[in-house]
Simulated assay, not measured.
Amino acid sequence: MYSIEKFLKWYKTKFVKKPISVMIITIVAILTGINTVFDTASHVVSLGHSTINLFTDKYKEDYQKLNEIRTGMNADYVGKLFGPPSISRKHEYLKGYFERLYVKDQFFLYLVTNEDNSIKYYSVTQRMNDFNPYFPIEIAGRKKQLGKTKLVELNNNSPEFVMADMSSKFISYTETNYYGNSGLYKYYQFGYAPAGITQISDQQNSDIHYLVDNIDPIVLHRFRQTYIPNSFSVIDEEVEEDFFNYYKESMIGIDYFEARGYN
């Protein structure tokens, strides 16, 4: 009752005497309220985008650092990017070469250098599902990411070499690809590293077991159509034949048994 009486009093004393002025004031008040609503909505949307970018870019710095690594560069530069390696030692099997291993929560970075400290091989292996650095080569003019890209999307043709291995503790798969000029004449490897995250189906597991003894084109094709690698490596274009043969026939990434010490 009180609110109705108040409204009638206002109507008689204000609106009836000065209707145009009151109407203008009312319209301005309404528009101000609408602007406030839109400003608030805009702020909420902006905050949402900021939150999304925060999660999307949480590994951005690591991606940028990994993208700077190239074969042929001095390995000490990698130390400036990631700090001192967890392991630095002579190569166990290749005379005149040295190994460096960087262990991070989200990835393993493994380097092989010569006596001049030049990087001749390096690999990156996922340790977390949401860690998806870009491959160091564009495929058909497009950048693709580790942990998001199927083997067939990295090379629609059969790879140059395939290596599948297994033991009572692990299985592994490594394929070696060559892209010529577009790949700067280096060799690029993609595969399943048992040291990394396990994203492999029963069928893919079965296919790898079969490929250990028989690189059957049908089985290989089926596997490559669905498997998303958890590791990649790059072999420099200027390496000796023994070096190249060793890594084309090796488990991609770091040794499985050594990696278990960091889990």
Rank of each mutant, 00 (worst) to 15 (best):
Y2L: 10
I4A: 09
E5T: 11
K6P: 01
K6Y: 09
K6C: 11
K9P: 01
W10K: 09
K12M: 12
K12G: 06
T13H: 06
V16T: 11
P19S: 10
P19M: 08
P19Y: 10
S21R: 07
M23D: 10
I25R: 13
T26S: 15
V28D: 04
I30S: 15
T32L: 15
I34C: 08
V37Y: 13
F38S: 12
D39W: 13
A41V: 15
H43R: 13
S46H: 13
L47V: 10
L47K: 12
S50Y: 12
T51W: 14
T51Q: 14
I52D: 13
I52L: 12
N53H: 09
F55H: 12
K58P: 02
K60E: 14
E61H: 10
N67L: 05
N67W: 06
E68K: 07
G72S: 04
Y77C: 03
V78L: 03
L81A: 01
P85L: 04
I87P: 03
S88P: 06
S88E: 15
H91Y: 05
E92F: 06
K95L: 07
E99N: 07
Y102C: 00
Y102P: 03
L109G: 00
T113N: 02
T113P: 02
D116K: 13
Y121K: 00
V124R: 02
V124W: 01
R127C: 05
M128N: 09
M128E: 14
D130T: 05
F131A: 01
F131H: 05
F131Q: 03
P133F: 04
K143P: 03
K150V: 07
L151G: 01
N155F: 08
S158P: 04
F161Q: 08
V162E: 05
A164H: 02
D165Y: 06
S167V: 06
S168G: 07
I171C: 00
I171Q: 01
I171H: 02
E175S: 11
T176E: 06
N177L: 08
Y185T: 13
Q189N: 13
F190Y: 11
Y192F: 13
A195L: 03
G196I: 08
G196R: 02
T198E: 11
S201Q: 02
N205Q: 09
I208E: 00
D213T: 15
F223T: 00
R224I: 06
T226C: 07
T226N: 11
I228T: 09
F232I: 06
F232D: 04
E237A: 11
E237G: 05
E241M: 12
F243Y: 04
F244E: 12
F244M: 13
N245R: 15
Y246R: 07
K248N: 10
E249R: 13
E249P: 01
E249Q: 10
G253C: 02
G253M: 01
Y256C: 09
Y256Q: 08
F257L: 07
R260A: 04
G261N: 15
